[in-house]
């Protein structure tokens, strides 16, 4: 638990500092490339921890099925571009199985869904965004307000925006030479509708389904004694 929290704080700071300082250092040169390297480096500790941590086959399978469900849940909602069920699945996973599992499921779900929708330069950003979403849910699950419904709702709503902003960031980063305030603002204004819809769909799903989903996962966790410590 302490470990994971340190990771999170350190890595978030590292990302920000590196992203910011590399603008100056590389003088706008190939900045998109640099940003990839930085993102990859930040995620490595999480993956490395997953590699060395003691974990049973059952737990690996459960994480895989959760990631697959998160990815597949987009299929029935393909006709509703504003509804984002994947985030909901990831948040609930983080709440029940903890920060590390939340991160893995989020990151893997991003790759898996892009295997079918198309990989692109956005994949690492999505991995990071969803990974962080799951991880934060896991880190905050034991705070008093996260145990309340309203806490979860606020969390879901905010993350709708954070995720959207993070995805805007890759457009910003790939256009850094060109960046003016107008451009910057227009990107964020352009995404307001989608982020709002994302946030609201999170709120909607958490409001109606979080209780039953948490119950289902907890029942299962208890029945097979899984991932208790993380």
């Amino acid at each position: 638990m302490v470990n994971a929290r340190t990771y999170l704080i350190v890595s978030s700071i590292v990302v920000l500092v590196l992203l910011a300082s590399s603008i100056l250092f590389f003088q706008h040169n190939a900045y998109l490339l640099v940003s990839f390297v930085i993102i990859a480096c930040t995620m490595i500790p999480f993956f490395a921890r997953f590699e060395i941590r003691k974990i049973t086959g059952r737990e690996v399978v459960i994480l895989a099925i959760l990631a697959a469900i998160a990815a597949v849940s987009r299929v029935p909602f393909a006709g509703f571009p504003s509804v984002q069920p994947t985030s909901f699945v990831i948040i609930v996973t983080g709440l029940v199985f903890g920060a590390e599992s939340g991160f893995m499921v989020g990151a893997i779900a991003a790759i898996v869904s892009n295997f079918f929708l198309g990989q692109g330069p956005w994949t690492p950003w999505q991995m990071y965004g969803w990974g962080m979403m799951g991880m934060m849910a896991g880190l905050l699950r034991n705070t008093w307000w996260m145990k309340k419904m309203w806490g979860k709702l606020i969390f879901g709503f905010i993350w709708g925006y954070l995720f959207g902003w993070f995805m805007n960031a890759w457009i910003v980063v790939s256009n850094i030479e060109n960046m003016t305030w107008e451009f910057f603002i227009s990107i964020f204004v352009g995404s307001i509708y989608f982020d709002l819809a994302h946030g609201l769909s999170n709120v909607f799903f958490i409001l109606i389904f979080s209780t039953s989903w948490i119950k289902i996962m907890n029942r299962f966790k208890k029945k097979y004694g899984l991932l208790v410590s993380s």
Partner: peptide, 8 residues
Amino acid sequence: LLMLAIRF
């Protein structure tokens, strides 16, 4: 893990 998820 990724492979399992893809297989599922």
